[in-house]
Design a protein around this nucleic acid. Sequence first.
DNA 1: GTAACGTACAACCAAATGGTTGTAGATGAA
DNA 2: TTCATCTACAACCATTTGGTTGTACGTTAC
Lengths: 112, 112
Amino acid sequence: MVVDELTDDDVNRIFRALADTTRRDIVRRTLVEEISVSQLADLYAMSFAAVQKHVAVLEEARLVTKHPRGRERLVRGNPERINQAQRLLDQFEQLWRSRIDRLDILLEEESH
Amino acid sequence: MVVDELTDDDVNRIFRALADTTRRDIVRRTLVEEISVSQLADLYAMSFAAVQKHVAVLEEARLVTKHPRGRERLVRGNPERINQAQRLLDQFEQLWRSRIDRLDILLEEESH
DNA sequence: GTAACGTACAACCAAATGGTTGTAGATGAA
DNA sequence: TTCATCTACAACCATTTGGTTGTACGTTAC
């Protein structure tokens, strides 16, 4: 089990990277199977360079990794990073739950 | 149970809103308790207007709601929206899991 | 009523974002 | 070798973002 040592900048990059429809689609596809950058580029109505930039953003957020195969670069989704994002949201939900718990205790005390 | 009918733009706004340290802090605090905009502004080393804008971004993403009380506007975190974000990430993880499952089946078949 | 407080909103600015085209370097196929 | 393919990267551009200051307006307190 990896202790997550995410800086604020890390978290910013992760959510920022996920805040784009094309990039989320790339993550989904590359979680299912490795795809080269040019294959990805064929999927979207934009230039190769634009897709390349999206992949770069995802790579900086470590949501995907790139793996050379000949002249190609295979893009692979990183489930561990998705997991870290989930845990971050879990922490938010936990904050809310603990508030509810405290309110419950207050109501409890009041009924005595 | 609410069927989530999130458009791509909705999702973009949610993740975009979460991609900022100040905004995540606002969400955390307002999930725990309602806080007025000016109280929030006191917490950060930036102008009132800047904080107001951050709250506006969160409000457009529906991660918080505002509730007038006299001249104040109380900001309240929206746990439901956090939950929707969690479910989105769950879908990503599920994609990956199903890939693993398919790979397992392949290995299984191979061993026959 | 008047002053102070809390908010809204416009105008402005620098930097980042998301796209483009163009050029150049590796690699694979003929 | 030569040509096509895949990638990298620079330069450019319009728009968005994240901040600022200033002004105006409703509400509360005195």
